[in-house]
Design a protein around this nucleic acid. Structure first.
Length: 176
DNA sequence: CCCTGATTCGC
DNA sequence: GCGAATCAGG
């Protein structure tokens, strides 16, 4: 694959938008992330400020939040489904986060009692083999994902897999 | 181990 | 000019 004007333009655009080299490589197709990085250098495009690190997209630091007392039932949000999409490398992660006023509060109480050894990963850290079980309130900034290793390419770790695939009949009512 | 960008250097 | 290999870092 050679660098046609079009491809170069796309490269410039995506790079300026802050996409990572591997993400760009995935979109262009036919090239590796190394090829992209190499091209970026040859074009003398501005590199990423600090080397070896996360894409600047994560730069938005959350304003420190004083840990509040265990959340009391505050399920204002009615049943909602928000789709959040992010890419990690050439991997596209699209998550349907259901905010179920019943199930959520049962599985995700204020404290992380239910969650084993969460690695507390950011959305940007998820890969094909990290558990994508959401922990906490997606609307709060302490929200994160389990992140434990998941067998094969399962979306969840062994523990959360059980919770994830419980038959509806089993979880109806305050069964838990 | 996953990922990131940076650099080198044979082609 | 190209990009795999390698390096350096989170």
């Amino acid at each position: 694959m050679n660098w046609t004007d079009e491809r170069v333009e796309k490269l410039k655009k995506l790079w300026s938008e802050g996409l990572s080299a591997s993400q760009i490589a995935a979109q262009l197709g036919g090239v590796s992330r190394n090829a992209v990085i190499g091209k970026v250098h040859r074009l003398s495009l501005p590199g990423r400020a600090k080397a070896g690190g996360t894409a600047p997209a994560t730069a938005s630091r959350a304003p420190k939040r004083t840990t509040s007392a265990p959340r009391a039932p505050n399920y204002a949000a009615r049943a909602t489904t928000r789709t959040v999409t992010r890419a990690q490398g050439a991997t596209v992660v699209r998550e349907e986060v259901e905010i179920d006023t019943v199930e959520e509060m049962e599985f995700v109480p204020a404290s992380n009692v239910v969650v084993p050894i969460s690695r507390r990963l950011e959305l940007t850290q998820l890969t094909e083999r990290t558990c994508k079980w959401p922990v906490g309130d997606p609307l709060k900034d302490d929200f994160h994902f389990c992140g434990n290793d998941s067998p094969d390419s399962s979306p969840y770790c062994n523990y959360h897999q059980k919770l994830a695939y419980q038959p509806v009949s089993d979880r109806r009512r305050a069964a838990r």
